[in-house]
Each structure stands twice: as structure tokens, then as C-alpha cells.
């Protein structure tokens, strides 16, 4: 299989984490692309925090319904069996533990499982939207991110930016590695094909334990 770029590689690897029947919320941007690579035979129910489950693909031309958009305001379709609800019910689903997996991007993530992804003070303050509720409430929180920001590590000992949530991240998937967050810290579980341990350590500020069962990432 040909993987076009690192973002596709990350999305493909995360798609393999999803299980049949999971209720999943995908953040806007890179996480949204996970939906394109869900393995055959795995049916997940995508939740959109603006008020529905059963999110489908992008509409084809002539298929756009102005009343159906995703949480980024983009036109989308719904699948058969979808259901709409209001924002209070939507976040009841999220905080109530009814979302099995959420996939979100990161500005910074650290070895305690803390995440910062909603603001850079004085520079970029778009607001947290639904991210804080998703990270607090979803059973599993997967971070989809490039390993570094143009060489500057994003996986840190301690986040410096304002936090989205404390200690809620389950795992981090980058173009270089699959890293699990455990009570003892970060464990490197998989490395991407052609990548060396040195590459990963150079791009990571956080302490990494290397799994006894280290594998090559497969997408």
C-alpha cells in the first residue's frame, strides 16, 4: 500500500485502533481523516458534537443539505440510522462516558498524559469548543499529531501551554511512533518503518520507556 504523506500515515494507524461498534468523535483537521481509513468490517458510529450520531462522508456535488454540518461547520452527510439531538444531550453523551474513543490534535502533550491544544496565549485563542469535554469524558483519548513542530518537540516532560485536560490522554500517534500513556509514564510501543530509535529520542523531550515488545508500526 502506498501512503502519500505523514498525515495519512497517522490517520491510517489510528483507524486501526477503532473497534466494531465504537462510538467515536473525531476532531477537526487531521483527526477527521481517520474516518477515511477505517478497516473493512469495522463499523463505528461517528458522533458530531453539534448534535448527532451517524456522521457520514463529505457530500457529493448536489448532495449538500445546508442543515447538516459537522462540528467545523462543513457540510456532511448522515448515514442510515443517524440521530439528531440538542447540544445538552450531545455533551451528556460526551461527559457521560458514551463516547468510546475521541481523536484530537495537540499543540503539546506530556508524559503525565496532559494535553494542551486550544490556545497559545496572546497569539492564537480560538477557544476550546468541545475539546475539554471530549478529553475529560471519552473513555479513550488518542492524540494525532506530527512528532515535532518543525523539529521542536511536541511530546514534552511537562506542557507549557494552557491545558485542555489533566492526565486524560491514552496514547499518542505520530508519523514516527505509537506511544502509550501509562501510570508509569510514556511507553514507546511501535516505531514507524525506516525510523530509528535515535530519530525518535531526538524529537522527543519526554522520558520514554521502550516496550519489551517493541513493534514496527503497520498501517
Amino acid at each position: 500500500m502506498e501512503v502519500k504523506n505523514e498525515r495519512e500515515f497517522i490517520a491510517r494507524r489510528i483507524a486501526r485502533e477503532l473497534k466494531d461498534g465504537d462510538v467515536v468523535n473525531l476532531g477537526i483537521g487531521l483527526p477527521t481523516r481517520v474516518a477515511n481509513y477505517i478497516p473493512e468490517g469495522v463499523n463505528v458510529i461517528l458522533q458530531s458534537e453539534n448534535g448527532f450520531v451517524g456522521l457520514g462522508s463529505e457530500p457529493k456535488e448536489g448532495e449538500i443539505n445546508k442543515d447538516i454540518v459537522n462540528a467545523g461547520g462543513q457540510p456532511v452527510t448522515i448515514k442510515k440510522g443517524a440521530a439528531f439531538f440538542d447540544s445538552a444531550a450531545s455533551f451528556g453523551i460526551i461527559r457521560g462516558g458514551h463516547v468510546d474513543v475521541t481523536v484530537l490534535g495537540a499543540l503539546e502533550v506530556d508524559q503525565k498524559g496532559n494535553l494542551a491544544n486550544f490556545m497559545v496565549p496572546g497569539k492564537m485563542v480560538p477557544g476550546m469548543g468541545g475539546a475539554m469535554d471530549l478529553v475529560s469524558g471519552a473513555k479513550k483519548v488518542i492524540i494525532a499529531t506530527t512528532h515535532t513542530d518543525k523539529g521542536a518537540p511536541k511530546i514534552l516532560k511537562k506542557c507549557k501551554l494552557p491545558l485542555t485536560a489533566v492526565g486524560k490522554v491514552s496514547c499518542i500517534v505520530t508519523e514516527l511512533a505509537f506511544i502509550e500513556v501509562t501510570p508509569r509514564g510514556l511507553v514507546l510501543q511501535e516505531i514507524a518503518p525506516g525510523v530509528t530509535l535515535e530519530d525518535i529520542l531526538r524529537g522527543t523531550e519526554a522520558d520514554l520507556t521502550i516496550s519489551d515488545n517493541l513493534k514496527i508500526m503497520s498501517v
Binding site: E49, D86, S87, A88, S90, F91, I94, R95, V125, G127, M128, G129, G130, A131, M132, D133, S136, G137, P162, L163, T164, A165, V166, G167
Partner: peptide
């Protein structure tokens, strides 16, 4: 800026005669 779920629930409480609610969202953050 308010987390979306908190905002929705604050408004729901406002309209439902509920004096407030407890949420884990935002604990340990600004």
C-alpha cells in the same frame, strides 16, 4: 471562553430551575 458542554449545561440549568451542576470538564485548567 467556556467549554461547549459546560455552556450548554449552564443554559439548560438556567432554563430548568437548577442552581448549578458539577463537572470534571476544566479541572486543572484555566
Amino acid at each position: 471562553l467556556v467549554p461547549q458542554g459546560t455552556l450548554a449545561e449552564q443554559i439548560r440549568c438556567g432554563g430548568s430551575g437548577i442552581g448549578g451542576f458539577l463537572t470534571e470538564t476544566g479541572v486543572g485548567t484555566i
